[in-house]
């Protein structure tokens, strides 16, 4: 017999070894997330996928599904807190959407829309962060990095290159590039690498492609992130 657990009253089948996120996606239930991508080892750091499992907060992307779990995914409290966590990401970096090439295709922005976020709530850090435009085809704008490590994992697990890492502690944490100069141009990154295309925000961009799709016709200008994520990731979870 298939094992099941319950999310917001809906029965979700799962197989041993699946996380709550995997089982939920496969069953068509969207759980907010940014650092998770079914292609890579779950990370559990953004905390947007926090769900309540039998009374306890857990990261759905790393927490194993088990028989009879009672999971709350959608509640006023969880969504308000997810909004605050998203606002934390917005004030930590320098996210000026109108001047960002990624606007409309940005998952950070789309999650904010999804959570009905209209402001940043907290005081801004306005940290001075660098832009690395040294590479001929790819650039890094550290102002927009949210430390999800998707590029780190993609480079390691798909490209087999280890181009990226996260260095430093606390609020001084930064994405670093594995090259003698620390610059992207001296790294092994190629424009065709998975790591160059995986960034959920506008921190890693492919040069000369930013406006090939006009603003107003981009992914999240018309589609909600829950539908987009389920369409692309639910399938990946099935395999």
């Amino acid at each position: 017999m298939t094992k099941t657990f319950v999310i917001d009253g809906k029965t979700i089948p799962f197989e041993d070894g699946q996380t709550i996120m995997q089982a939920a996606s496969a069953a068509g239930v969207y759980i907010t997330h940014l650092c998770h991508n079914p292609q890579f080892t779950p990370h559990g750091s953004c905390k947007l996928c926090t769900v309540n499992v039998n009374g306890r907060n857990c990261s759905a992307c790393t927490f194993p599904a088990s028989e009879g779990q009672n999971v709350t995914n959608i509640s006023k409290e969880l969504n308000e807190d997810r909004e605050k966590i998203t606002q934390m990401l917005f004030v930590e970096g320098n996210h000026f959407c109108p001047s960002c090439e990624k606007t409309g295709n940005c998952q950070l922005q789309a999650v904010a829309y999804h959570l009905n976020m209209t402001d940043n709530h907290f005081p801004h850090f306005f940290e001075n962060r660098e832009v690395d435009a040294s590479h001929p085809d790819v650039m890094i704008d550290h102002n927009r990095c949210i430390f999800c490590t998707l590029c780190v994992r993609a480079s390691e697990q798909v490209d087999g290159k280890n181009v990226f890492a996260i260095s430093g502690r606390g609020i001084d944490k930064r994405l670093v590039v594995n090259s003698p100069s620390g610059l992207l141009k001296d790294s092994a990154l190629d424009v065709s690498d998975c790591a160059a295309h995986i960034c959920p925000t506008g921190a890693i961009l492919i040069k000369r492609t930013g406006y090939s799709v006009p603003i107003g016709q981009r992914i999240y200008d018309h589609a909600h992130i829950d539908a987009v994520a389920l369409a692309s990731e639910g399938e990946a979870h099935d395999h």
């Binding site: 917005f90 996210h95 000026f96 940043n120 801004h124 306005f126």
Partner: peptide
């Protein structure tokens, strides 16, 4: 809401 383009002088 967040300072916008003028705030890009903040760094």
């Amino acid at each position: 809401i967040n300072g916008g383009l003028p705030a890009m002088r903040n760094h």
